[in-house]
Nucleic acid binder design. Sequence first.
DNA 1: CGGCAAACCTGCGAGC
DNA 2: TGCTCGCAGGTTTGCC
Length: 276
Amino acid sequence: MPELPEVETVTRGLEGALLNDQFTSVTLRRKNLRFPFEEGFAEKLTNKTITRLLRRAKYILMHFEDGTVMIGHLGMSGSFRIDARPVETPDKHDHVIFKTKGGKTVRYHDPRRFGFMILTTEEELPDHPQIAPIGPEPLGNEFNGPVLAERLKGKKGPIKTALLDQKVVAGVGNIYACEALHLSGISPKRVAGTIKGKRADSLADAIKAVLSSAIRSGGSTLRNYSTTSGELGYFQHSFQVYDREGVPCPNEACDGTVKRMVQSGRSTFFCPSCQR
DNA sequence: CGGCAAACCTGCGAGC
DNA sequence: TGCTCGCAGGTTTGCC
């Protein structure tokens, strides 16, 4: 999926298109995504002003004037597309079609259907089971080396795996975990609990750097990611190590080669020479 | 409780 | 051209 930078970009795009507008219809073209849509899902989002669009970790939070909140997740392959006019022929995997009072059509597209949309309320949001356990937002002031070290304390597994745990830090996925570890010169195999002090500072800084850089370039993309402005593969972000097995290590001071290995069933790309 | 594989799905590229 | 295989950005579940 989209990791934090992509979800941030999508959320901002939705905000620009939908804030202060209302859905006049919500059409479910199938009964479920990852989860079944709840009873009355469409009606609960219809004819209410959209008051806020926020991101938390990799979740999109759409607030409505009556306190309803839709929690959306893009899974691995979810995307939104916005058209300024009605869409006559939705794609095969356009599972939800929203039409707005302002005349826009918003389509949620998700071939693998790992994404979902669920409803809660503003009052219940902080305690919601999907939201409550999530760790600190990495781009906020509340995230830094000491905070990261504290959350990794006692963890015996590899740091790469720990970074994917949303309870440790919010929004980091497989790509940016690899990139942040490379930038900070830390081996993905290092025992998570040994990250402290200067090393933790360096890793926290690297996480902030790779995420904010990706947001600046509009979120990065693989083949099926799209921005809310409708373009597919609109921008390309180049990664230093992710999916670059065999290339010379991009660290100028290093003569190593990028390798791939599998940790907890996920590909890790790293340089065994400069990551320690 | 920690850690890990499997499961949820479809699409795509590589290799034969 | 067409088949099969392996792999894909996430999260949850269930098993040791």
